[in-house]
Nucleic acid binder design. Structure first.
Lengths: 136, 136
DNA sequence: ACTATAATTCGCGAGATGACGAAATGAAGT
DNA sequence: ACTTCATTTCGTCATCTCGCGAATTATAGT
């Protein structure tokens, strides 16, 4: 397997060239997330999200950490990866979609992971107090 | 027109996610080039190169300047574009393909454009002093 | 006008990509 | 062992991408 620097750069750029993957990277800025959390935000099938995360990992943009039943993903810490992500997110800037995702992620983090993965996430509860969302 | 910052970033990344387009951007670091010059280096059909350049232009990574019969392309000067290109070329680093392309471009620039576009470029003319370095 | 030619557009075929649901995998909890 | 459930893998389908050659457009020179 010969993977030239050019191929690596092309792979990284291609991985960034999809809204779901770019949104995922933006979400991970606030810390690690498990697949079900990312799935809840993107509103895609779990298998689809898993495939996207696989792409990001193969491009070296993301790290994978298995913790029991869940798999947590985080931003890769290699300089090349950080440069790519910085460039991409600087270009995306203050996109409304990304900021909405970030808000949703913040709400998600306040919930126990188990509840989220089981039931999905009720997006209508966002505007209100988080305690209400944690209720019945 | 519905072009969010996220869409723009995705488009830019997708444009970078192809070896021919990334090689083109690398070539343009040394200055403007016309389509036939880029075609000579990439060794693709003119229609294919034209399509790639269209992609790069629509992504805002490249500028187009018509000068008589020829169309000259150069790197876009917008900050966002420069950031993308810098990130990509830093990641590609000192790729052998890119350096070979750069050498070929240098030779091309020494020729009058008319001769090049007419006959294509005889790559064996480079062979005298460069074939050993370029490999078989 | 006429020709030559740089470049683009068009149409097509082959292959890659992205979405999904169903089934398989693997780690906890009972 | 059995069940539960988060995640992945697999099969499939629709769509997009990339390459080419042929036809078209546009500009320069005669």
């Amino acid at each position: 397997m010969k993977s030239s620097p050019l191929d690596a750069a092309v792979a990284a750029a291609a991985a960034l060239g999809h809204p779901a993957r770019l949104r995922t990277l933006a979400m991970l800025r606030s810390g690690e997330l498990c697949v079900c959390q990312i799935t809840a935000v993107l509103e895609l099938a779990p298998s689809t999200v898993s495939a996207h995360l696989k792409d990001l990992r193969r491009a070296g943009l993301v790290t994978e950490r298995k913790a029991g039943r869940w798999v947590h993903f985080g931003l890769a810490r290699e300089p090349a990866a950080r440069a790519w992500i910085a460039a991409a997110l600087a270009a995306a800037g203050d996109d409304t979609q990304l900021t909405a995702d970030a808000r949703l992620v913040a709400a998600l983090r306040a919930l126990p992971v188990e509840d989220l993965c089981r039931t999905g996430f009720d997006r209508t509860a966002l505007g209100q107090d988080r305690a209400a969302a944690a209720g019945p």
